[in-house]
Amino acid sequence: MIEVSFDGASVGNPGLAGGGVYINSGGSEIRESIPLGVLSSNHEAEFAALVQALQYCLEKGYRSVSFRTDSQLVNQALEKRYVKKAEYAHYLERALTLIDRFDLFFCKWIPDEKNRNADALARFAIRKQQNADKSECGPL
């Protein structure tokens, strides 16, 4: 079983957002920083990161995965297969569609301090976007 930690982060509401995916597969590590553009909130970034992590795992051919998240909102939405806020509903629908393609899927809530790898990757994705925005401005 592949262990996948994911996290979303944003600077501002709305603001630039990033996703981080950290995979530990039999001692080898995979780290992905995913720029997510401008999103409405950190919660939206968490849902977007979930979808990105699921897509990544399917593209790599992983069939049995155990996801870890520090977002109680995302974890509860997956458990209940329901989310209150309409702005997250399409992310949940997409995630559930992707989850159905796995042979085995688990998701577990973990505290922030146990999700540092994915958090650092999400924050790196934001920095990449900020640096790209600065370089597009050019000299005055």
Rank of each mutant, 00 (worst) to 15 (best):
S28A: 04
S28P: 00
S28C: 06
E29H: 09
E29Q: 10
E29R: 10
I30T: 15
I30A: 04
I30S: 01
I30P: 01
R31E: 14
R31S: 11
R31L: 12
E32Y: 03
E32P: 00
E32C: 03
S33M: 02
S33V: 09
I34Y: 02
I34C: 03
I34E: 05
P35F: 02
P35H: 05
L36H: 02
G37P: 05
G37M: 06
V38Y: 12
V38A: 07
V38P: 01
V38H: 08
L39P: 02
L39K: 03
L39T: 08
L39G: 01
S40Y: 13
S41E: 10
S41K: 07
N42D: 05
N42C: 11
N42L: 09
N42H: 11
H43R: 06
H43K: 06
E44C: 04
E44G: 07
A45K: 10
A45T: 12
A45F: 09
E46G: 05
E46C: 09
E46T: 10
E46H: 05
F47K: 11
F47H: 08
F47R: 07
A49S: 11
A49R: 02
A49L: 08
L50A: 04
L50C: 06
L50H: 02
V51G: 06
Q52K: 15
Q52F: 08
Q52S: 15
Q52R: 15
A53H: 04
A53E: 11
L54Y: 09
L54H: 05
Q55P: 00
Q55C: 06
Y56Q: 05
Y56G: 09
C57E: 08
C57D: 10
L58N: 06
E59G: 07
K60I: 09
K60W: 04
K60S: 12
K60F: 01
K60G: 01
K60A: 12
G61H: 12
G61N: 09
G61P: 10
G61T: 13
Y62R: 08
Y62F: 14
Y62G: 00
R63N: 10
R63G: 09
S64T: 06
V65T: 10
V65S: 03
V65Q: 02
S66H: 11
S66W: 07
F67E: 02
F67I: 04
R68I: 02
R68S: 01
R68E: 01
R68C: 01
R68G: 00
R68K: 08
T69Y: 03
T69W: 08
T69G: 03
T69K: 00
D70V: 09
D70C: 10
D70L: 07
S71T: 04
S71K: 02
S71M: 06
Q72T: 13
Q72F: 00
Q72S: 04
L73Y: 03
V74R: 02
V74A: 07
V74E: 06
N75I: 00
N75H: 14
Q76W: 02
L78M: 14
E79M: 15
E79L: 14
E79G: 04
E79A: 12
K80G: 05
K80V: 07
K80C: 00
K80N: 15
R81H: 08
R81I: 01
R81G: 12
Y82I: 12
Y82F: 14
Y82G: 07
Y82C: 09
V83Q: 11
V83D: 05
K84I: 12
K84D: 15
K85F: 09
K85Y: 13
A86T: 15
A86P: 08
